[in-house]
Write a protein that binds this DNA or RNA. Structure first.
Lengths: 247, 247
DNA sequence: GCCTTGTTTCGGGCCCGGCCGAAACGTGCC
DNA sequence: GGCACGTTTCGGCCGGGCCCGAAACAAGGC
């Protein structure tokens, strides 16, 4: 007899599920796939293979595992196999894990790499919302204006809801659609600060793209604030884009 | 040339870290250890070995991997090796993963198992805060009284902060200690609903235990509401413990 | 001192799962 | 039809990791 009380069916069925889920991400190549797919777009199998530098055959097998595991959904079109993250929940799952990686240490080498990573640090999308200095600066500005409460947790305030209605012409009723939280903090791995995620974060990002206040740069996930966007953010949030290093 | 822009150092160093972190949980035995340790207490190596039904030697190796990976901390005392989760952050990490497991399906067999799992479903601790029907009911009552905002995210309101000061004699200044969020929603895997976690959740649980409003039952993580506790919750939150099936 | 008990280290066996290349399949283009 | 290209399946190789048992270490208890 031990001092502990081991339940009759000691190892719970739960542990098997947890191990299997973790196992999906417990491989360098699959992890790279998921991180790449965090940009929210659909990639083809070949693109992912090239990105992770593995043979197409290897990539194919990994993708079937990830889709069967429920992390990815696929969509065949012609001779292409497009895959993307199955849902915002999956994106949150992966974000949540990466937030627990100790050091943001990572020093790029080579001029193109430096430029690319500087652009990413300035602003980028994180699945369907904004991240990087841009995402954090907007979140901070909204917090400063009382639109977001970061003091007692992370939530959109009443004022924040009306701001969405007025500034972005959002139907506020749809801000709480389904089970997905209206607002959520997402830890930024370059800034180590929270930025706005959840339904509101997605709306904000979509709204800015729609109005061409931000624009995707290159083919990746980096985004750049446009000059009209900078003016709009100064107007709506009192955000000084230049001082925040967003230009 | 592909249509995608693969960065020169294609597979980011990040993916290695993610894979390694996930790998720590990608084993049935280690997953079982972590789930057991979610009760927040320190277990000895032997207890965990018996719990997961593996040889002590296997358990030992798993524990060194988990501690070296930063998920566990150990504390040697005499000939015992006590381990526990390294921090609330780790508990959140594991909770976050388990929240993504599809079905809560799990049907216990045997009378003792049924009793045990019924007690767990009624009320239990989840690392350092309350979960089960008890945790969800308290959270709902607090939400109904405007102490918690679950509408725009998950946050403790101003009224909630004063409630902590008055009802639990908490120093509200310490409610935002360090980087840990004041309030956080934690998805309950029996109820599939959010309950209060974060610093406030820990304070609440500690406060109730201190006042003997709840009491640990058995040696596990199950807790039971006492009769004075039921009266107190009716007083402070208007919560009808009997109607909520907490007795 | 000896014995018990909790833990660790080591060796060995086994199997899973990663990778690749070659070949087959399907689709779209010409 | 024929060709090119993206993808998948299969076989084979190989390394890593999970398990155990036996033996070696502590740390108490006597």
């Amino acid at each position: 007899m031990t001092t502990q009380a081991p339940p009759p069916d000691a190892a719970p069925a739960h542990s098997i599920g947890l191990a299997r889920l973790a196992g999906l991400l417990a491989d360098r190549t699959r992890a790279a796939f998921c991180l790449a797919l965090l940009d929210g777009r659909a990639w083809t199998a070949g693109e992912l293979a090239a990105y992770a530098r593995v043979a197409p055959s290897s990539a194919s097998e990994h993708l079937t595992r990830l889709t069967e595991g429920g992390l990815l959904v696929e969509h065949r079109q012609g001779r292409h196999r497009y895959v993307q993250l199955a849902s915002p929940r999956v994106a949150e799952l992966i974000e949540g894990l990466t937030a627990h990686l100790d050091p943001p240490a990572e020093r790029p080498s080579g001029l193109r790499a430096v430029n690319a990573s500087a652009a990413l640090a300035r602003g980028r999308t994180c699945y369907d919302h904004l991240a990087g200095r841009l995402g954090v600066a907007v979140t901070d500005a909204m917090t400063g204006r009382g639109l977001i409460d970061q003091d007692g947790g992370f939530a959109l305030t009443g004022a924040g809801r009306t701001w969405f209605a007025e500034a972005l012409a959002t139907d506020t009723a749809t801000l709480r659609a389904g089970r997905r939280p209206t607002a959520r903090g997402c830890l930024d791995w370059t800034e180590r600060r929270q930025h706005l995620a959840g339904v509101a974060g997605a709306r904000l990002c979509a709204g800015l793209l729609e109005r061409a206040w931000i624009r995707r740069v290159g083919s990746g996930r980096a985004v750049r604030l446009t000059s009209t966007g900078a003016a709009a953010l100064r107007d709506l949030l009192g955000l000084d884009a230049e001082a925040a290093g967003l230009l």
